[in-house]
Design a protein around this nucleic acid. Structure first.
Lengths: 199, 199
DNA sequence: GCTACGATACCGACTGGTCGGTATGCTCAT
DNA sequence: ATGAGCATACCGACCAGTCGGTATCGTAGC
């Protein structure tokens, strides 16, 4: 119990380099197909260093996910707290989500593909975070539907599943060097979702 | 070069049992985490039988994908050939896609997660099929936008990416024993997409 | 100011076990 | 008798994790 990866303090340079290499390799080859040796070679450290900071290969996966969901949940709370109207809130959520996801395509790709490999305890933690996010988003939509600002033909729950589904699939087709900026793409997706919801 | 999995004739019972067991295990545990021994145990055959029909573990993955995309592409062509109006065509595509995906959640889950493990040749074949599907769908939307039946605020390409993104994410949240039938869910998704597109 | 000492950060050869794949042989149906 | 359809024993490569060390640094006692 020494490394900051186990909960204390800021990550060191070595630790960050290991995680960066791990994310890239996991995204390219998958978790199981990536060997610890490949990770340490790419990070230009040694196996000893890796196992100094992390107890197991699985820990890398958890750290990757943890830093991702943390940022996104915080952003969501921040946006909702602004107390804008439902249209602007939904737009802000979607644009922000597309932007943060585009900035972390590798992390998102890895997590979408490999999340089921978490052990029971971490899976529970993941589900809790996921559920909280989902619920917050759903509440915004449901509230606007009750108030008559959004049409309620499609259940709020399904709306959220559709919206988050699009985001999670983003890593499979979004290209950073493509013609559309993350912000533009976010606006397009927001346009689409709002067009479907507006009365 | 003996088995029907290599392109000749109908799959035998043994072959089907192997594939069914493989799909289930791949969906549960992932491709790499599933051992060949687990597959043959689950299928109640032996390793000799498996390697009699398949050259390598990777072949199982390809067979799974191949049977899935084959069915869906055929359905798409069938629907488009009917020559309905754009609204009804899009609705039919989406409802059908949800239904076939719901009927094969395991196959879809496996493929979404593991497609990047195909070798170059098979990856090329996959991309070609995928592109053909995407293009056919996109043409329907683009044509209706040009004709003024759909609004063109969001590019047809993005519309298709959104729609297919939702479908591909379906295995992560769709539950066969849930309250919503595949057809209902398909209608909801079609409602949503059409609401966003209609002028 | 020096040194003993504990702690942290790291090194890299090694191992025990696992897993994809193969070699070989048996047994029916044709 | 010949080949398809299996069964079983086995091989060799590979890989996560270990473990006995070393290097460097802060600090407390003298």
């Amino acid at each position: 119990m020494t490394g900051s990866a186990r909960g204390r303090g800021e990550p060191t340079t070595t630790e960050r380099r290991i995680l960066r290499a791990a994310v890239r390799l996991f995204a390219e080859q998958g978790f199981d197909a990536t060997t610890v040796q490949q990770i340490v070679d790419a990070a230009e450290v040694t196996k000893g260093a890796l196992y100094h900071y992390f107890d197991a290969k699985d820990d890398l996966l958890y750290e990757i996910y943890h830093s991702l969901i943390g940022v996104q949940a915080a952003e969501l709370d921040r946006i909702v707290a602004r107390g804008l109207g439902p249209r602007e809130t939904v737009r802000a959520i979607l644009v922000n989500l597309v932007e943060t996801t585009a900035a972390r395509v590798d992390e998102t790709a890895v997590f979408v593909r490999e999340m089921h490999k978490l052990d029971a305890e971490r899976m529970a933690a993941f589900r809790a975070d996921r559920r909280r996010y989902h619920e917050t988003f759903r509440a915004v939509v449901a509230e606007a539907q009750r108030g008559g600002e959004f049409r309620d033909a499609v259940p709020a729950n399904t709306v959220v599943l559709i919206a988050l589904g699009v985001i999670n699939q983003l890593p499979t087709w979004y290209r950073p060097d493509g013609p559309t900026t993350p912000n533009q793409l976010g606006q397009q997706i927001a346009d689409f979702v709002l067009a479907a919801l507006e009365t």
